[in-house]
């Protein structure tokens, strides 16, 4: 049975809203795994760190496996300590988003690998399996052929393979904060302006084309990944889990659409159409999985071509 994972919230939401979001996810969303924690900017963590234990407890009561996600770009001493602390806690599964975590995790410790770690081939998968990897969310830019090869290789090594299936695609991470830059500020005096954009700040081309979205030090796609229509292809490729990345929309409804499609109660194409109907403002793309530019919507039937 294909699992559904809720990825870590990538955006800077007010703490109250953060708690409300996970409470509703815990109680209502048909999800198997929920990743929690700050992946993008360590400066945001203090605003909600004290709320994490309660969210974990509620998610577990809701039947979800809780996974704690590590920071993607680790440079400061404080950030290195966060990684060490995360690795030291033994009560939860950990998802690594940077190899700094491998320096800290005990040798016999199982872990999950997030989409910001470069897993492009069987050799890397084998190495990570030898270090304890059991679940890998693949980099979003991989085409279906690579996904299928890695899913097959993963099966022989006890690794469940996951694909980014909903939400803005994480395209880049930097030492520089673009939210601060757009507001004429620097990272160290950012005034947390990223908090003004719960879905990221859209970046348009000079011809008004929707292009990207910035989220502090992270750059995301403007389009949301939307792989509902590709579920049969992904399952046939041996994918074990799909990742839904939180956006400022009804994520419970999104999770239900995915669950119903995976359960065969909704046809994939009809489900993708329903999703587009629920989120009329949103542009969906599936170019990466189709082996095309990531921004493209390959349409139905690309995999047969």
């Amino acid at each position: 049975m294909t699992q559904l994972t809720l990825g870590p919230l990538l955006f800077n939401w007010p703490a109250e809203r953060w708690s409300d979001f996970y409470a509703r996810i815990a109680d209502e969303a048909p999800l198997d795994r929920v990743c929690l924690g700050e992946v993008v900017c360590s400066k945001r963590l203090p605003f909600y760190a004290d709320r994490i234990p309660e969210a974990i407890e509620r998610l577990q009561r809701g039947g979800k496996t809780v996974v704690l996600s590590s920071l993607a770009l680790v440079t400061l001493a404080r950030e290195q300590r966060l990684c060490a602390d995360l690795a030291a806690g033994e009560d939860f599964d950990v998802e690594i988003n940077d190899l700094t975590m491998l320096a800290h995790l005990a040798a016999d410790r199982d872990f999950a690998v997030g989409p910001l770690v470069n897993v492009y081939n069987e050799g890397t998968l084998a190495f990570l399996a030898s270090r304890g990897a059991r679940h890998v969310c693949l980099p979003p830019e991989l085409p279906l052929a690579s996904v299928a090869t890695l899913a097959a290789a993963g099966k022989t090594r006890g690794i469940a393979t996951e694909v980014w299936a909903f939400g803005r695609l994480p395209l880049a991470i930097s030492g520089r904060c673009y939210h601060a830059r757009v507001h004429g500020l620097a990272k160290d005096s950012c005034q947390f302006v990223c908090g003004e954009d719960p879905d990221g700040l859209p970046v348009e081309t000079l011809d008004g084309e929707d292009f990207l979205a910035i989220n502090g030090v992270q750059t995301l796609s403007f389009a949301y990944a939307g792989l509902l229509g590709d579920i049969e292809v992904l399952e046939a490729a041996g994918v074990a889990a799909l990742r839904l990345s939180p956006q400022d929309c009804d994520m419970v409804a999104v999770a239900r659409l995915f669950r119903e499609t995976l359960d065969g109660r909704l046809a994939p194409e009809a489900a993708q159409e329903a999703l587009a109907g629920d989120l009329p403002e949103i542009v969906f793309a599936n170019g990466f999985i189709a082996g095309r530019p990531g921004a493209e919507a390959a349409g139905h039937g690309w995999s047969a071509a």
Binding site: A72, E141, L169, S174, S221, G287
Partner: peptide, 19 residues
């Protein structure tokens, strides 16, 4: 300006990536 090896911007626009 992005962390190298962790950037799919080119791939998003063209399908061709550094990685």
């Amino acid at each position: 300006v992005m962390a190298e090896g962790r950037c799919a911007l080119s791939s998003y626009a063209t399908g061709k990536s550094p990685n």
